[in-house]
């Protein structure tokens, strides 16, 4: 038996919007720790990891570990039927091939349940060891989204370089080139508007903008984003979900050959 009640249902709607472009089908794993998902995109270039900790739910019952295969487009269709202030409850019985999403309006005058068929998904789970990164950049998520969008109108790839001067995003295409430098800026009114660079050593890596743009679908989940870079590792783009967990995206770099 599984029953997860999330008062801030809009959060789940945003989570689906954040991952459905990158991944078509995925297994949602439910355990005492929380509600999680790990999935690669179809070309095995990027990976998304989601965690919603059990403590973040108003009610969290998960009698035994359960993995539920879902088509994310279909989940998104269901969740779009929930109002933005609705309380969302996810329910499943042991051994059942369906999951139920229940939506309650804030004043309890409307209750809807949507039952969705589960599917068998052969998904590969990758081990991601903790790593020390050469540079970690924290910046406003809206700013990062803007940069990725702007640069993708010029080129297909971005070089992200971190030095003690700041973080530089560069691209080149048929019509020209573009460079955007963000300097460390801690002296802002609100901490979420700051750009903070923790650098052990300079690092420069090349990534496909298409994937980074897809990651920025998580922007509504968090005011800030952290970008962790090391020369021999995929970049980690993390959006923290307040009090609950995170959506992390991992993207393998491009190399010169």
């Amino acid at each position: 038996m599984l029953e997860l009640r999330l008062v801030q249902g809009s959060l789940l709607k945003k989570v689906l919007e954040a991952i459905k472009e990158l991944v078509t089908d995925a297994n949602f794993d439910c355990s005492a720790t929380g509600f999680s998902l790990q999935a690669m995109d179809s070309s095995h270039v990027a990976l998304v990891a989601l965690l919603l900790r059990s403590e973040g739910f108003e009610h969290y019952r998960c009698d035994r570990n359960l993995s539920m295969g879902m088509n994310l487009g279909n989940v998104s269709k269901m969740l779009r039927c929930a109002g933005s202030d609705d309380i969302i409850t996810i329910k499943a019985d042991d051994g059942s091939d369906t999951v139920t999403f229940m939506f309650e309006s804030p004043n309890q005058d409307k209750i809807a349940d949507f039952e969705m068929k589960l599917m068998d998904i052969d998904s590969e789970h990758l081990g991601i060891p903790d790593a020390e990164y050469q540079a970690i950049v924290r910046m406003p998520s809206g700013e990062f989204a803007r940069i990725c969008k702007d640069l993708s109108s010029i080129g297909d790839t971005v070089i992200i370089s971190v030095t003690k001067e700041g973080v530089k995003f560069s691209t080149a295409g048929d019509i020209g080139t573009a460079n955007i430098v963000c300097r460390q800026n801690k002296t802002v009114d609100k901490p979420e508007e700051a750009t903070v660079i923790e650098m052990q050593e300079p690092v420069s890596l090349t990534f496909a903008l298409r994937y980074l743009n897809s990651f920025t679908k998580a922007t509504p989940l968090s005011e800030t984003v952290s970008i962790s870079l090391s020369s021999d590792l995929p970049v980690v783009v993390e959006y923290k979900i307040a009090d609950m967990g995170y959506v992390r995206y991992y993207l393998a770099p491009k190399i010169e050959e």
Binding site: L47, L126, G127, A252
Partner: peptide, 14 residues
Amino acid sequence: TEVQLSIKRFYHST
């Protein structure tokens, strides 16, 4: 030429 690496080059199945 640029080559796109796979995520599976870095992380392995558990």
